[in-house]
């Protein structure tokens, strides 16, 4: 792995910039396991850590992060979970599938078949609690945000924007065109780890 660039983000955060998904997942896991950092947040091309500057000075924090990255992070995605989701894509559950398909000059089924050939992996959680950005989508499929975001998207909804699927763990507002919905319990308030999806996990979707 190439040494990632480190960018300070204000007084109490540092950002490692690295594009490869495997690197980010492995780095994040190592950093989280170290117990040094208050927060370890995976971004699209980065991992950002937050620390307490009154306990760990900024120079020392930078030094520790550099050392952590050099250490044992060759192990890529060994042991990442595989999650199978059944996703319904009838009109009620996939209100934007027809439009997405039309934008790619194909039928809804053809669109989903193309998606089905993609190897999908949770890249990061963000935007809203448990919202999963899933990468690996066939780059030939085009599509952008809705012109008018919805006030409420149901939990379990699967959105599509070029290159990504976005999975809504909770009800909430959203601007992704919705191409399906799963009944799987993506969020369990009472669980110690309340979200089914985690960064690095492989997602296998059965479109029905």
């Amino acid at each position: 792995m190439r040494t990632p660039v480190i960018v300070p983000c204000g007084d109490d955060a540092l950002r490692l910039v690295t594009r490869a998904t495997e690197d980010r997942q492995a780095i994040a896991r190592a950093l989280r396991g170290s117990g040094i950092w208050d927060e370890v947040v995976i971004g699209r091309e980065s991992v950002t850590v937050q620390f307490d500057p009154s306990a760990l000075g900024p120079a020392k924090a930078l030094d520790m992060l550099k050392r952590a990255v050099k250490a044992d992070i060759e192990a890529a995605l060994v042991g990442a979970p595989v999650l199978k989701l059944r996703v319904r894509s009838d009109e009620t559950n996939a209100p934007d599938l027809a439009d997405c398909a039309a934008a790619n000059n194909c039928s809804g089924n053809e669109f989903l078949n193309t998606l089905g050939r993609s190897t999908l992996r949770v890249d990061m959680l963000g935007f809203a609690p448990g919202f999963a950005y899933v990468s690996g989508v066939d780059p030939n499929l085009m599509g952008g945000r809705l012109d008018h975001p919805r006030q409420r998207v149901r939990a379990g909804s699967i959105g599509f924007i070029k290159g990504y699927l976005g999975i809504y763990a909770l009800d909430g507002p959203g601007g992704w065109p919705i191409i399906g919905r799963t009944d799987a319990t993506l969020f369990d308030k009472a669980a110690s780890d309340p979200f089914l999806l985690s960064p690095g996990a492989e997602v296998q979707i059965e479109w029905t």
Partner: peptide, 10 residues
């Protein structure tokens, strides 16, 4: 910019 971690105070 690619989405990245942010915190209160930004």
């Amino acid at each position: 910019l690619p989405s990245a971690g942010i915190f209160p105070g930004a």
